[in-house]
Design a binder for these strands. Structure first.
Length: 215
DNA sequence: AACGCTATCAACCGCTCTCGC
DNA sequence: AGCGAGAGCGGTTGATAGCGT
């Protein structure tokens, strides 16, 4: 265990490329998850927390960087409505995106916009050019998640599958083609998508009942 | 060119959760 | 069952890049 003096000597601030390299090597040697060991053995003078954060948000393989696509934006907005500020859960539905990135994106782009109440519809053109996100979401690498999260994700997965069977061309758990999404539509906590879903099937309420205990 | 303001995002902090003993 | 340590999560901060005046 780290003593107080060691803690105060810990380096902070931005990571240098050479530190990234050392961290990468250490993760390869000691494995993802042993952050205390990695912190100690790397000689980086970075806390385990700091190492974990850097790895998770920047160095991990398959990290997608750059602008969010319209699909991703749409999915974030809808999942945020359903799940609230469960960034890790939301990020789990966006292959290659991290919870920190999703959170930052929400805080800087989306929350502001929805507060301002700017009316902007998702263009049908954009909707038509959507990538098969639903399929991709089945393939994203498994992360270390809590049992609750695993359970919540499995409920969402089965929901996606069911809705795809329902012939709705669902590309995300909560978006349907031909249903224009209003960014400033009134915030009806969580249920609006499920109510919408409920118009077609009883699944909506079932999903909500299933997922609520995990939230 | 210089200054101030705003937006962005990497990183930190503090709390909660999980797991092993 | 209770405790402690480590991991994970969400909120917040701070550095800095970009833009307007």
């Amino acid at each position: 265990m780290m003593d107080k003096e060691f803690k105060t000597r810990m380096k902070r601030g931005f990571w240098k490329p050479e530190e990234d390299l050392i961290l990468k090597n250490c993760v390869e040697i000691h494995g993802e998850g042993n952050w205390a060991t990695i912190s100690e053995k790397s000689g980086l003078m970075r806390s385990g927390k700091s190492c974990r954060l850097r790895w998770k948000n920047y160095l991990r393989p398959n990290i997608k960087r750059g602008m969010m696509s319209e699909d991703e934006k749409d999915l974030i907005i809808r999942l945020h409505k359903l799940l609230g500020n469960r960034w890790s859960l939301i990020a789990g539905r966006l292959p290659g995106r991290t919870d920190n990135e999703v959170k930052n994106f929400w805080n800087t782009h989306l929350s502001k916009r929805s507060c301002r109440g700017k009316k902007k519809h998702v263009k049908s053109k954009e909707a038509n050019s959507r990538s098969p996100l639903g399929k991709e979401s089945q393939e994203f690498p498994a992360e270390t998640v809590s049992n609750k999260e695993v359970a919540a994700n499995s409920v969402l997965d089965s929901w996606i599958e069911e809705m795809q069977d329902f012939n709705c061309s669902l590309l995300s758990p909560l978006s349907m083609n031909n249903v224009p999404f209003l960014e400033d539509e009134p915030f009806i906590p969580i249920l609006d998508d499920i109510v919408l879903l409920d118009t077609f099937t009883s699944t909506g309420k079932e999903v909500w009942n299933e997922i609520q205990p995990f939230l």
